[in-house]
Nucleic acid binder design. Structure first.
Length: 583
DNA sequence: GCCGTTTTCGGCCCGACTGTTTTCAGTCG
């Protein structure tokens, strides 16, 4: 069994950490870290790039790293890494991962006290041994004790839905303060990343002190990580870290650009700024003269908006969702940025549940809620019979339901349309849960995996291919079945599935539920590039879930999706004609 | 280690905050 992209990415991340602890040239270990980040986001298996001979076309992958990737794929091992592991105990990387402990401290603890595990670090700290070390003191020691305790509270990244909710609550509180002129969420929430490391909030004000005082004094604060005149950081009781920066109005553009990230995007932007004769930071563009000297403050160029920042360095504004240094800078330079889909483009929801299976609302209630949200048509797609816990429908009940759908459709008038479909299970053995003669009577069929998600790649892929090749299946719902942070993706051969989707003209769903966001943007982008149709559906079981659509839009935008390729943007007549043209 | 319409060698972004320092290193984003 070949190593997965993520496993190889993890190895490069470990190599980067180990080299950093060893004091290796920073550009060298940063190269490994960059490679690690890139490999974790690829839409195809690394072996596919090897087969194509396109491995070194991936940004940040040169000769040395591509050779190591090949060695790992061929032998499951890497000699370079094994040698490194013999020099640096791997458990030290967990120590480096503790907030407030970086490579230098980790090495110090290891060399001076022979500490190689978090447990032994905790013991040493509680015995007061760390404070004796050079550059350490009682405060640093106490911080380390607190950070180790925080490890159990904060388990890695937070799903965007949870993070955004927490961020919105704090944002509302800040906006209500008299000193705050304006406040905005920046960082990875603004970029629409699936999971969030920490929350970044930006506030406009000339009077930061009372804002900072309020921020660190909020009831939900577990501990204060730092507090200064322009930047403060807190950890919430949930373990989530929130950073607040306060800046005057005229710096809002540079600050928003800066704190929206991503880091890689910003590095590129600042390089471009340098080429235009500016050093760019969160405060201003600072001109540099021909001799390479930065001019004094009187020459600084301030930008109140992000558009200003990009314009001053000769670029069009780039949507936050694209800012990952994944080709958006090149596209901006070439004037070929995509015309990204927006929430206003979405006219339909093609995957919704009702009380007929496990939803909480009737068909009529879902239809009215959808109309209130600006939709012109929906498809009711309750579960099929295999999904017993969800009260899935067999053929007989489906046809009963169809009568009610048709009746509601009549009641809703001419400007709103309710169609009848199903979310049919793709069974564990690869069969469909409903017969062809039942499927043929439905307007739109979503086929989904719900069970047997841990099957091997061959079986999972066979099931999906069976569904794609069924003439009645119009759309594959939440393809990998992942639940972010709780259930891993099924092991799908995306190349094979995409090929079949293209050939059979089957739509692939971006499920907007923030617990799913499936397809993930990296795969949706590849599907979109290949010319596969996409749908953005809420999979709503309730009104509240209908309002999760923005997460699906963010994901689609991260996939560079344009309205034309997303069938929810099609007017009803066009959509209806298209499904009629299919079996 | 990566990369190239200013380079195949010599570059590779930038600042805030903290704690331990007598002016700065370490960490973080």
């Amino acid at each position: 069994m070949a190593l997965t992209n993520q496993e190889i990415a993890d190895i490069f991340n470990n190599i980067a950490d180990m080299l950093e602890i060893q004091g290796e040239n920073r550009f060298k270990f940063l190269s490994y870290r960059r490679a690690g980040e890139t490999l974790g986001e690829l839409p195809r298996d690394l072996q596919a790039y090897v087969d194509d001979g396109t491995l070194t076309d991936i940004p940040g992958i040169g000769k040395a790293i591509s050779d190591k990737i090949k060695e790992l794929l061929e032998t499951d091992k890497l000699e370079f890494y094994e040698k490194l592991r013999a020099q640096v105990p791997e458990s030290i990387l967990q120590i480096k991962g503790i907030n407030g402990v970086g490579p230098k401290k980790a090495k110090l603890f290891w060399n001076e006290l022979n500490i190689t595990t978090v447990e032994s670090l905790q013991t040493a700290a509680s015995e007061g041994k760390l404070r004796e070390l050079p550059g350490m003191g009682a405060k640093s020691e106490q911080k380390i004790i607190e950070s180790i305790q925080a490890l159990s509270r904060n388990r890695g990244r937070t799903p965007i839905g949870n993070a955004k909710q927490a961020a919105d609550t704090i944002l509302a509180e800040l906006v209500a303060l008299p000193q705050v002129e304006e406040a905005m969420i920046a960082g990875s929430i603004r970029r629409g990343k699936t999971t969030i490391g920490d929350v970044d909030i930006l506030a406009v004000s000339d009077d930061a002190e009372p804002i900072m005082a309020h921020f660190v004094g909020m009831g939900r604060v577990e501990r204060i990580l730092g507090q200064g005149p322009t930047k403060s950081s807190i950890e919430l009781r949930t373990g989530l870290q929130v950073d607040l920066r306060v800046l005057p109005r005229e710096r809002f553009g540079t600050a928003l650009q800066y704190f929206t990230g991503s880091k890689d995007h910003n590095v590129r932007i600042r390089e471009i700024a340098l080429n235009k004769g500016y050093s760019l930071n969160e405060h201003a563009l600072r001109p540099i003269d021909d001799a390479g000297n930065m001019l004094d403050e009187s020459h600084y160029v301030y930008c109140g908006t992000e558009e200003d920042v990009y314009e001053k360095i000769g670029l069009p504004w780039i949507a936050p969702e694209l800012r990952e240094d994944q080709g958006e800078i090149e596209a901006a330079i070439a004037g070929k940025l995509p015309n990204l889909i927006t929430a206003e483009d979405i006219l339909s929801d093609l995957h919704m549940h009702t009380t007929w299976s496990d939803g909480t609302l009737s068909i009529r209630e879902m239809a009215e809620a959808a109309r209130e949200r600006g939709k012109t048509h929906i498809v009711i797609t309750d579960h099929s019979k295999r999904n017993i816990v969800a009260n899935g429908l067999d053929g007989e009940r489906l046809l009963q339901q169809q009568a009610e759908v048709r009746a509601v459709n009549e009641e809703m008038g001419d400007d709103f349309h309710v169609l009848h479909g199903v979310e049919m299970d793709i069974l564990e053995d690869g069969d469909m849960d409903l017969s062809d003669d039942i499927l043929a009577q439905l307007d739109f069929v979503v086929a989904s995996l719900h069970f047997g998600l841990t099957q091997d790649r061959a079986l999972i892929t066979k099931r999906l291919l069976n569904a794609l090749n069924n003439p009645h299946v119009d759309c594959i719902g939440h393809m990998t079945g992942r639940l972010i942070g709780t259930r891993p993706s099924a092991d799908v051969d995306f190349d094979a599935v995409f090929e079949a989707a293209l050939e059979t003209d089957t739509v692939l769903e971006i499920n907007a539920n923030p617990a799913r966001l499936d397809l993930d943007a990296q795969y949706a982008r590849r599907a979109h590039q290949l010319g596969i149709k996409l749908a953005i559906n809420t999979d709503a079981h309730s009104i509240k879930m209908m309002d999760m659509l923005p997460y699906g839009i963010l994901t689609a935008r991260r996939a560079w999706a344009e309205p034309e390729n997303v069938i929810n943007t099609w007017a009803f007549d066009r959509f209806y004609a298209w499904i009629q043209s299919r079996a």
